[in-house]
Design a binder for these strands. Structure first.
Lengths: 213, 213
DNA sequence: GTTTTTTAATTGACAATGTCAATTAAAAAT
DNA sequence: ATTTTTAATTGACATTGTCAATTAAAAAAC
């Protein structure tokens, strides 16, 4: 029953597709995601998706873009709820961690499916960047305020890497239950924050002791 | 030209298969790996691999097992070259990082292809565990010697997570060149090591200040 | 209101893939 | 020399991603 497609209908179709793609991924992994299966879920023909997506990879990219966008929204909202840089950082780390813990399959699909994405999917790249912006911004503010010292970008990466690494181990079932990863994250973020913070001042002295890694 | 297969010939076939699987992965990603293509690389029929592997996933598992084994060997060798716990930890972190930097595709195939069941491939699971053992052991020794305090397993996980997280960002082209990641790793490991070390002693006091993450 | 045009959706077709059953052929055992 | 074991190949089939051709329905033109 063809008629002209409103932009809203296109978005709704793409959104439903992402829903089913994520559900299938959660149940059967990335191998279980099949174009024809998704089409069946939407009760349309096998090639109808081609009117809404370039190809199969484009569906995965759209899904990942959407979820990175949700994470970015959550981080931006968290950032606004606090004003003090230290509390902001703690809150951002907590939000990031909770996102991954509560929606493990979502986090998995966001990162695990990093098969061949260079910068071809520009919208996805934008959302990824946006999801990391809040942490980068609070670090930048901390550096400007003299609370931290060093390259804000690098410090942001270190914090991000710490969180992502912990989550990766957790999702690989190499860690314990929720409380354990939260505890680990607490220690880790606190430690990394202290490492680049100018406050304790003991840090700089300790750094000079061991020169090479 | 069938004859009886010696265990050595079986191993050689499996090894060649892993070689080509890794090379293909490096060139065309995990999607580019095809049973028939690998068979063609080995100049054998399409179904010959089934005599040496259970199925396609089994080939990937064998490859990952082999590479985790190589990493484990490197870590064990590194551990033996030092005696002082601090130097051991630094050396282990460096070896781990260099492995990932020098063979990015190898590291990718080891972790990115985590679609498989954890406990289904017992040999792979064993090698993964073994690759983490040296760090765990040196942390354990440090705790026993009073240099560090806390749960050795958790501390080991934290260090592992930090390294893995940084490498993940690096492999996703979200970091700069080699020198940059090494610098980041230096700061990170040093910081995490200090966090759990009893030496500065200032740490315990600072920990008590902020209770919740 | 009828015809034409545009556009959404379906069907048909094809090559590529993973895997199994049946078959061939070569070495080992008898 | 014959039988048995075992390695390797071929044939076959269902699934998959994707494109070309086709159908059908809504919008536009007349």
């Amino acid at each position: 029953m063809p008629k002209i497609l409103t932009p809203d209908e296109v978005l709704r179709f793409r959104d439903r597709m992402c829903d089913h793609a994520l559900a299938t991924f959660a149940k059967h992994g990335v191998e279980g995601i099949t174009l024809r299966g998704l089409a069946a879920d939407l009760s349309c023909s096998r090639t109808t998706p081609y009117r809404y997506f370039k190809d199969k990879a484009d569906i995965l990219a759209a899904l990942r873009k959407r979820e990175f966008g949700r994470l970015a929204d959550a981080q931006e909202a968290t950032l606004k709820q606090e004003t003090e840089p230290r509390k902001q950082l703690v809150a951002l780390a907590s939000t990031y961690l909770q996102f991954a813990i509560k929606e493990p399959d979502t986090y998995r699909v966001m990162y695990q499916v990093v098969q061949q994405n260079p910068s071809q999917y520009t919208e996805l790249a934008t959302e990824i960047l946006r999801s990391g912006e809040p942490i980068r911004r609070v670090v930048q503010a901390s550096v400007s305020a003299g609370i931290m010292h060093g390259d804000p970008t690098n410090i942001g990466y270190m914090l991000w890497a710490g969180l992502h690494g912990l989550i990766a181990l957790h999702l690989a079932d190499l860690l314990g239950d929720e409380r354990e990863i939260e505890e680990l994250a607490t220690v880790m973020i606190r430690s990394l924050g202290r490492a680049v913070s100018t406050e304790p001042s003991k840090t700089a002295a300790a750094r000079r002791t061991s020169k090479k890694l």
